[in-house]
Design a protein around this nucleic acid. Structure first.
Lengths: 380, 380
DNA sequence: AGACTATTTGAATCCGTTA
DNA sequence: CTAACGGATTCAAATAGTC
């Protein structure tokens, strides 16, 4: 099912020249087969809005590792994570970053995720290539694998680097959406999210399809923060397609590169069944609103209350749609769960947690029930 | 008040040669004046247990470029500036890391703290110099400065890199002490600590003495985790002496390097008034690995576990008889308490001390209880 | 059904000493 | 250098099994 679409291409030949617009064909919604550097060569220059890259970490693991209970840890021992030396890894990094930089729009941005094994080398290569680091973001895992031998600190986080094309380059940052998602507080550079498991983890015959599948909530926040609906997102290390699945949910265009056939197959099947959200749910808050006390947005992000779902009051007199950033919209009015509840009732204030309900297994249940579940799952 | 003390110096000239001990003079409790690379040259090789470094990273900010030696780089061309700035910074980093590596003991370790501006370059330089990264630790600030312009994520963390001298090198890690500090859970790689303020923040005439004074709690955890009392800690970028103040409190020796006279002055005054903890308070939880070994046979010999008695696992699925030499026999199989336990379970290994139990006053008790009694009775 | 317990598992540079 | 061996070492969440 090959699909191409005409998109606007922006080039910036010389610094003072106005960006020119021209029409090019992009392989939207496709997974390009083969090495990512080769695959990216088929993409015209200056056409991609955002790149999310999850390159091999070059873990350099030694022997086997047993848990205290005697079971064996399933190590990442795939060939694609083996490099002869730091120099080999640096060369690999420079090559794919070079192509990434070529195909990004002048106002595009790039995200790369890694661990201490590789992230310092990646960050250095990004700076050397001319990228301008905007933030390093720490993914704090709520349920990391322990250090079984008691030899170091529990490796409980991974690092993401977010960078623009240069010091003076513009970039997309949906500040208001992030603030709404974070309970009216500025979104910080440390994000607490669980690792990918449970129903979300792709499995085939009881075993995981990909050893390092990333959680959709991570990509959700990345895309919501730094892209707009309709933007083209490219992932050079597509794996089982988390980037594609979230892009589809959030109304973004996507392109993947992946050389492993079984990963491509699993990714296509997965993205096929992903449900895009309503357009109204994708609009992010534009105006300032009063501060809810608890981050309803985190529940939306984590899937406790899906974006696009409908909430009502107990007597079903009012209803509203949940948007991607955790705000509600009802007709022409929008706001936080508290603000919109108060506004619709003509009341001075409203506790949105008890006012709004959603259909659950036990019938209509207040949002507060979901909050309790979330608190139980995320509390330190 | 110059003070020198004789310490043990460990050198490892050639791989197969035994470390030699010799007496050298170290400027303990002193702040060396001048550039840190020059200052470290006066320290003998292989004499320092741990280095904590908080290098400057404002070398390419704000348009004005300062060389590490304090001179100004002329602004010429944007790209050239950036390249020159990174190259200059890398050269500076390589030079001070090289000296740091020379003066560290073979089993010493190094900590470096930084932000996204410099930490990737520092981490790459550390790996290239042969250091082996043990963890990257995220200091998550509980009260960071907001991003006033709303253009990025709130920069709410800094990164620390902890590394040993090489892949095979040993290092100090007080695992039990960290676990105790963290409410009996493994200490993670993300630490939540407030920034330095209040009474702790050094001020003179209402303004802060140092722009990036680190909180003592941060150094406290670093030193408690990776040094022992009496160890020598060196800080090449001493500033206002947080490292020295905490070292004094925790009964560690310290050496600082600082070229700014007003920082040295403030640091000396501060450290003078720091109160060292009682020796008893310095003791931390020790891991069992560091406890003296006890042969099970010694317990049999001493009558703590009579020869001929029966031991079982906790669920009484396996049982064995204790023989006079401290071996166990179960049916046709026999072996050490560990070997037989592993063999019976089909496990790769087994801790016989906690696996095997014997009938005691309080019901089934692990052999480890008898070991503790034996240790108490035989210790000096 | 529901409460409780047991099992499984996740990007991991994961032991130390002696022969 | 490798091999042997004593024995130290795990957290959160999802899932499966049991009462």
């Amino acid at each position: 099912m090959l699909k191409t679409r005409t998109v606007q291409r922006t080039t910036l030949i010389q610094p003072r020249e106005q960006p020119r617009q021209m029409s090019v064909e992009l392989p939207l919604g496709q997974i390009l087969d083969g090495d990512c550097v080769e695959a990216m060569r088929s993409i015209p220059s200056g056409t991609i809005d955002m790149i999310f890259a999850d390159p091999p970490y070059n873990l350099q693991l030694g022997g086997d590792l047993d848990r205290p209970d005697g079971s064996r840890v399933d190590a990442v021992d795939d060939d694609w994570d083996k490099f002869a030396s730091f120099a080999t890894y640096d060369d690999f990094t420079q090559r794919w970053l070079g192509e990434a930089r070529r195909i990004l729009k002048p106002n595009g941005s790039i995200w790369v995720i890694g661990s201490y094994h590789n992230i310092f080398r990646v960050g250095t290569a990004m700076q050397d290539a001319g990228f301008w680091i905007l933030n390093d973001v720490v993914w704090r895992k709520s349920n990391p694998m322990p250090n079984f031998k008691g030899t170091r600190f529990t490796n409980a986080h991974e690092t993401l680097i977010w960078a623009s094309m240069g010091e003076k380059a513009k970039y997309t940052f949906n500040y208001r959406a992030m603030k709404t998602l974070n309970d009216e507080l500025q979104m910080r550079s440390d994000w607490v999210l669980p690792i990918c498991g449970g129903q979300e983890r792709l499995k085939k015959g009881g075993t995981k399809v990909h050893p390092t599948q990333k959680p959709e909530a991570l990509l959700y926040r990345v895309m919501l923060a730094t892209t707009n609906p309709g933007d083209v997102v490219l992932d050079p290390f597509f794996g089982t397609g988390t980037t594609g699945a979230v892009a589809k949910r959030l109304g973004r265009q996507w392109i993947g590169c992946e050389r492993e056939g079984n990963y491509r197959e699993a990714a296509l099947e997965r993205i096929e069944s992903a449900l895009p959200l309503d357009e109204s749910a994708l609009k992010v808050m534009q105006s300032k609103r009063s501060a809810p006390r608890v981050a309803f947005g985190a529940l939306v992000e984590a899937g406790y209350v899906p974006a696009g779902s409908t909430v009502t009051d107990k007597k079903r007199r009012f209803s509203a749609t949940v948007r991607a950033d955790g705000s509600l919209v009802s007709g022409k009015e929008s706001g936080s769960i508290h603000g919109l509840g108060a506004s619709l009732q003509g009341a001075p204030s409203c506790n949105g947690w008890t006012f709004w309900h959603m259909e659950g297994e036990k019938g209509l249940q207040p949002l507060d029930d979901a909050r309790q579940l979330y608190l139980l799952a995320t509390e330190d």
